[in-house]
Amino acid sequence: MARRPLQEINAGSMADIAFLLLIFFLVTTTMDQDIGILRQLPPPVPEDLETPPVKKRNVYEVLVNSRNQLLVEGERMDIADLKEGAKMFYTNPNKDPDLPILTRQTRGAVEENITLLQQALVKDPKNKQLETDLKKWKGKLSAIELIGEYDELPTSALISLQNDRGTKYAMYISVQNELSAAINELRNELAQDKFGVAYSELNPSVAEDKPKIKAIRAVYPQRISEAEPKDISGN
């Protein structure tokens, strides 16, 4: 008997099976990319902790009341002006006596400080405070090497954001967003000026960009502090 040629398997139903699976995955898929404003919360503070006194000129006070109105540095302000205000606080170009004094970081002074700290550390090698100080000054030195001498904000300078319990969430996000925008714009300008790329284009996972990001963050640190919650307006 002659052998019949092998019959092919009918693959017509393959499409149906694949369709079934396809529809299952279509239904379960969520395509939405989650984007948002990232923030780091401060760790819980012990109740008896005393806060060190801070000069008034070093704090940029932003209050939002339950009617979603802004009070910035004691004056009513529109949300559209907040970004410019925060930029002024960070740079103080007109030497305004109500805004922080920026101090020039010169290479000589920074190097001197580093040698002083190193000598102190030799005498007292277990002092943790000296070690962190040394690290901080070395960071400043590498920033100077990358972008030249710069004006530094006082370490106590910060933007203090306080809101009422009745503030609308959308308003709160707007304020957070405008404050971030101010810092990001300053950082972008500096990066564009020194490295020819925007700060947002620098990639922290690239070894070459890492010191650049650090240097720019040293000049314009993100210091947005949220006060311990309390009722401002009492309602």
């Binding site: 990232l38 919360l41 760790p43 308003m171 967003n177």
Partner: peptide
């Protein structure tokens, strides 16, 4: 709870339109 990394989930758009 020491869960300090947070994210405020938002949509892309101008923040000035929020109010």
């Amino acid at each position: 709870a020491q869960a300090l990394k947070i994210n405020y989930s938002v949509n892309k758009g101008s923040a000035l339109d929020n109010n």
